[in-house]
Design a protein around this nucleic acid. Structure first.
Lengths: 135, 135
DNA sequence: ATCCAGTTTATAATAATTCTAAAGTAAAAC
DNA sequence: GTTTTACTTTAGAATTATTATAAACTGGAT
């Protein structure tokens, strides 16, 4: 994704393309493979990659803004930190607790044959399959 | 589950049946349906139900002790608080984010036809299916 | 009854995240 | 191109869930 697209992405989401947002967006979205991170890991990587330092609160603000705009998804992982994913399509995850690593599973690689119907008055929003790994 | 069984349950787990543990165990395990809770909700419910007050740290200690002994399971729910479940068999969950409620799904009610093979050198520990609900 | 390891307790410490209010800035209005 | 305005960033404080600490307590062995 090119810089011009980054700017468009931000503008069309109603996000003013500030220096910080553009930097973070470039870091997150200018890549081929999907990327999983926590606010802490993102912060460290940004410190290395770019010369600028961002306030931690800015990382939080930005990541949440991107999430609200649908550019990031939050992954269901129990633990202290919240994981985010640049893959916003419907998909599943392996979780390797050895090194706290998430790995995407394409939606097509999981086929569910049978699920229960939703409780009264409720509908199914989405189904997440989480495969925990061991060595 | 009767009191005598509660005591046996604690003793066979190597847990000394203290006043607090017995009270909490009775509250958690003397019921027919499975029960989902957070430390906070459990604490509130115990305050109402029993005349005794427990230190919050005791609730944490006890819940973790029960979990280590295999009498409680921890559920994968993203959010600030950790959820526990008196159902320790292999099963899945609905999650109703409207009222932060978990509902058990029997393992037999979910059939997965296809899953990807685990990444190199890793094995599958378990599979958790999480069905998010909406109104 | 006495003792001791395991427990409970109140409180402090920690960790992730959110809040706050002042200073900064993109972009609209002039 | 200035000025203005509303949105952002920032540093630090506040909050929240959880864990650690260390002193007081207690079940159960002796």
């Amino acid at each position: 994704m090119k810089k011009i697209d980054i700017l468009k992405k931000l503008r069309t989401s109603g996000l003013r393309p500030t220096k910080q947002r553009v930097e973070i967006a470039k870091f997150l979205f200018e890549r081929d493979k999907t990327f999983h991170f926590t606010v802490e890991s993102l912060n460290k990587l940004l410190e290395k990659k770019t010369s600028n330092k961002f306030a931690l609160a800015t990382i939080y603000n930005t990541v949440h803004a991107f999430k609200s705009a649908g550019h990031l998804s939050e992954v269901e992982v129990r633990g202290k930190k919240t994981y985010f994913d640049t893959n916003v399509s419907n998909h599943h995850h392996f979780y390797d607790s050895e090194n706290s690593e998430l790995i995407d599973i394409d939606s097509n690689d999981v086929v569910i044959q049978k699920i229960p119907k939703a409780p009264n008055g409720k509908k199914i929003k989405n189904i997440e399959v989480f495969i925990n790994l061991k060595n």
